[in-house]
């Protein structure tokens, strides 16, 4: 199945300047699987999102507008057609 991952501008140089990429994952895949799929297609991006097996503190990931922090984190499941948004929590200019 495929999910769409929306990439923030500063990381798009790792995805050939694509704002959104389709990632193929198995049924009942998790966000961790999606990130691994993303890394396979676009090497280097995982390190920008994950540190020591956890999502970096300033990175927020939303599945269909729901923050995975409030679901199951990296273990959050995705389904066919889901939209995954990567949004950095950039402080300043509050």
């Amino acid at each position: 199945m495929a999910v769409t991952v929306h990439i923030p501008g500063p990381l798009q140089k790792l995805t050939n300047n694509q704002e959104a990429v389709e990632v193929e994952v198995a049924d009942a895949a998790s966000i961790e699987d999606v990130i691994n799929g993303l890394e396979n297609a676009h090497p280097g991006i995982k390190n920008r999102l994950v540190e020591n097996g956890e999502i970096r503190g300033y990175i927020n990931i939303f599945v269909n507008d729901e923050d995975i922090k409030f679901i199951k984190g990296m273990g959050t499941h995705v389904k066919e057609g889901d939209s995954v948004n990567i949004v950095p929590s950039i402080a300043g200019g509050a």
């Binding site: 500063p10 920008r48 970096r56 503190g57 300033y58 990175i59 950095p88 929590s89 950039i90 402080a91 300043g92």
Partner: peptide, 12 residues
């Protein structure tokens, strides 16, 4: 700024 916020930005 705050250390963590500014360092996060440099990294991101």
């Amino acid at each position: 700024g705050r250390s963590r916020y500014q360092r996060d930005k440099l990294e991101f």
